[in-house]
Design a protein around this nucleic acid. Sequence first.
RNA 1: GCGGGCGUGGCGGAACUGGCAGACGCGACGGACUUAGGAUCCGUUGGGUUUCCCGUGGAGGUUCAAAUCCUCUCGCCCGCACCA
Length: 817
Amino acid sequence: MTHYDFKTIEPKWQKRWEEQKLYKVDEDDKKPKYYCLEMFPYPSGKLHMGHVRNYSIGDVVARFKRMKGYNVLHPMGWDAFGLPAENAAIKHGIHPAKWTWDNITNMRNQLKQLGISYDWDREIATCHPGYYRWTQWFFLKLYERGLAYRKKSFVNWCPSCATVLANEQVVDGRCERCGAEIGKKNLEQWFFKITEYADQLLEDLKKLPGWPEKVKVMQENWIGRSEGVEVYFTAEKTGEKIPVFTTRPDTIYGVTYLVLAPEHPMVNELASGTPYENEVREFQKKMEKLNEITRTSTETEKEGVFIGAYAVNPVNNERIPIWIANYVLLDYGTGAVMGVPAHDQRDFEFARKYGLPLKVVINPPGESLCPEHITQAYVEEGILVNSGMFDGMNSMDAIKAIGRYMEEKGIGKIKVNYKLRDWLISRQRYWGAPIPIVYCQKCGIVPVPEDQLPVMLPDDVEFNPKGTSPLLDCEEFLNTTCPICGGPARRETDTMDTFMCSSWYYYRYTDPRNDDKPFDREKLEYWMPVDQYIGGVEHAILHLMYSRFFNKVMRDAGLVHVDEPFTNLLTQGMVLKEGAKMSKSLGNIVSPEEIVEKYGADTARLFILFASPPEKDLEWSDQGVEGCYRFLQRVWRLVEELAPRVKDPTADERLDREVRRLVHKTIKKVTDDIEERFNFNTAISAIMEMVNGLNSRKEESISGPVIKEALENLLVMLAPFAPHIAEELWERLGHEQSIHLMSWPEADEEAMAEEVVEVVIQVNGKVRGKITLPAGISEEEMKEAALRHDRVLPLLEGKNVVKVVTVPQKLVNIVVK
RNA sequence: GCGGGCGUGGCGGAACUGGCAGACGCGACGGACUUAGGAUCCGUUGGGUUUCCCGUGGAGGUUCAAAUCCUCUCGCCCGCACCA
């Protein structure tokens, strides 16, 4: 007898599968398609356990669906542009391209060692010119459709590095690299008009029943739709309109002041020449230094200053002071807020702090509020007072009525407002896809013509610790000619946000080597949408929302046929050790390499799938891994022991039936667990039970064909979880064709049928006994048997049987008094 | 504050539309084989005052029957957070 030698069999099969191109797919109209996609990784260097989990889950789905007769697209690639590559260049002097490609080689090998069933011929890397050429092409599509535009915007600015920083690179208001205090700078940046699709992105969440509620809610909050009215106040000094967004137009008569964001464009003009001018400047400077998080945190106290100017309320011509304050944000709504201290808690606090007046315009039903005595804002529904012609109206009705009134009068407009902001895609970085734009002195902003793509990222650049993009110093890149007039022009030196690259990669897998277009329409239509998308919940908003936006734009451009790119989404839980996320600082990292080295890929995969259902967090346990390793050894021994007996004659038909029942019940359970719920943990435990059951009967005389059926089904069911050992044992059973080309078994109802059932007998809901009865027994007979039961009889003495409840084939409950 | 999720043995976790709570695995204990055991195999393993009783964070309720449904409450995790 041989022992389970994963170190030999795993490489053996990985090699053979690769040679045979076992997992290669093409379009095939004879089979239903299934697109199984896992979020592609950033090539950081090595796989971590989170990756192993993600890809193990995806592999089970892909392998299972294949065995179920689907034509499965299961690709892998690399989200290969990004900052860490550039940091490596600055720190260690390695070119980002080399660093990235080396990491990819490494991680590709790791994935192959795990035996994941990818069609490697479809591998893509977003940093490859053959890929980013189309990223740039999509940029042009957005530009053509007016969805890519340039705008001045306040961005994080590090004065010492002389560069713009992404929000993630600002830590506690300081530069992550040099520690300098970050300021805000108003710079020209490229944006995508995702806000134009806000409504659709929100509405179409309803079309995604296969997405976790949690993710949909997060997107909903992020989009942040609110209905209200934009009211036009007038600046007394300049006569200019000051638009203010409010969801509570019913409180318009209660406005006692106006607050603008400190950066609001009108502030300087309104404040200039007033005694408050200096104070206003000071306040603005102070706000500039604060990053958004500290400034807008609920913990931060509300602060503001009067700017020395007044505005007029359009409904009653009241003159009200204008303030600026920390809690008003320029980029939400109109950057201006009306202050209604009696009916808004924030306004209430602000007004109390600065002694601003308070005016009650809504009373609780049957009550009358006194402005001097209220201790907090009244925000509930009520009856309007002090509101001119609207007095006496219910506030809910007044919201609509006043909105309509303002529209009629031209002093306001009913409006839907979103929290969602346009997507800033400019990055002052080298390692990204260059934005395909040229600036010509004569022609202005000129898109690079499609036939001149890709705008290649130059290799030969200097990396320096200045933090600026090397593209700025690269003369050959920077200087070009205008595609329109042929005159001298300058290239855009910013590169695109990497989320742009990952917003369309799932299209490219359908036709990864196409040099003429991003994809062939027919191929795309065959494979899209992605049937099952699997990844971490950390991408719940950004990546998934950008991809949805992108898909909608491309649909409107007539390039794709689906409304939503991902039909079903599974967000897997984290891998924890000692209750905490694995991290370097905690020193609780378990390396996939070590586990594969010590136990093999099959054990690693099996444990990760067995320890917890996929959506839940998974607590790593070295002993749990051992348990799975032992299980695979048991499987090995069982098959080795029983394999020689597949020609045994029939001896004990009762035993044969018992074994077949076990096998087919397991098939049913495993199929349901995988198919309906992705409960791989319980599917595996069912397989374990089957192995235990076979083990305990192996000394007895089971007939050859039943042994064969049992072993073959065992291996086929094990194949999606532990593909190498299943394949090896399959071969040892004498099969020439790969187990991974087998069909998933169907449970045989007849074989599953029980001959006897165990019926639980309860008296007043408490279990008092169990009896074995022939299957198919009637409820009446069950009842009789229960009432005769010797454990039941004494409990019935001197009591009345009130009622007998029966559950067919399962339970009898005798209710006595 | 708002939204989402979760509380079950020593541990990870089972229990589908209410119907035997604790499947499967880990750990622990006992035994067999053994020079040895951190290998393997077999057995036991929720708690207790053990014909029976108590047990799914807690308190009520609905029901013949509740981990599961309802009400209240406590605790933990995640997301958003002055959004006008």
